[in-house]
Amino acid sequence: MENTASIGEKDVRAVGATGARTAPGSAAARVTRRPRAGWLALVPFVVVVALFEIMPLLQLALDSVIGRDSGALGLENYVRVFTTPLYQQSIWNSVWISLLSAVVGMVVAFLAARFASEASPRVRNAFTMVLNMMSNFSGVPLAFAFMILMGNAGVLTLVGQQFNIPFLANFNLYGADGLVIMYIYFQIPLATLLLIPAFAGIRKSWREAATILQATSFDYWFRIAIPNLMPSILGTLSVLFSNALAAYATAYALVMNNYALLALQITSRFKGDVQTDAATGGALAMVLIALMVVCTLVNNYFTRRAAKGRELV
């Protein structure tokens, strides 16, 4: 068996070598002819990506620079977006709600990932299971669940009224408070799942070395562990931020289009009840795209840094 295998390998090599040496013309011809036909395999991908990804994006960019009122090429729509209170408010709300939910989600996730990585495998597996399952609980179902819990006749609202807890009794789900609570909810599983692998890179010996060198717990966390995790933390933070910026279903199910939020306002410009306004919508969409692109670049930068070794920051 072994013999035939090795002979077979030799044969292959021999054929390859002689093929290349004895018939250079035909080999060259094959090399040039084949790849050209091979390129055809790329055609379906290119067509679909062009039709449904690239051209729609170009269309939005085009919408944004053709003035709604003047019809001329220019920044008219952008000027309107940045000077109209509704749109200013939308951009501002989107940014601060996303940022707040990302930071709070991050703090919870940091502690959860830390404890999960220190816990026994059984506890860690159970907890990761919960994270994986609940990371799917978002969008319209999530909004519905929170309406049952904290809506006008929600269970927790009732509890709040009966036991006199103003935070629960007077909680306004259908506004910024509700959005923040729900956004934090869907950030936590995502952030924790992204951070747990980073904690695996922290070695136990660091803690031991620090303790032996008389470092306090504070020293250890703020001078050793957190600086080390920083690239992962900042990378995850930018993922969370863009995740919240782009969230639509949760907010729409809760307040329809009646809230100044970037994703909601963009969509309602394009499928408005009265009239569509692609010019304004396009400009708003470009603002959202710009924010998302910045997030992606930030994330790429920190991901590369985290992968390179945790020597910096």
Partner: peptide, 24 residues
């Protein structure tokens, strides 16, 4: 190039994608 084209939807997500297609 392929990687870049394939990762764009991940960065932009549903809202942008859907309204771009509707608008076009």
């Amino acid at each position: 190039v392929m990687q870049f084209l394939c990762m764009i939807p991940y960065a932009l997500q549903g809202v942008i994608l859907s309204i771009g297609i509707i608008s076009l």
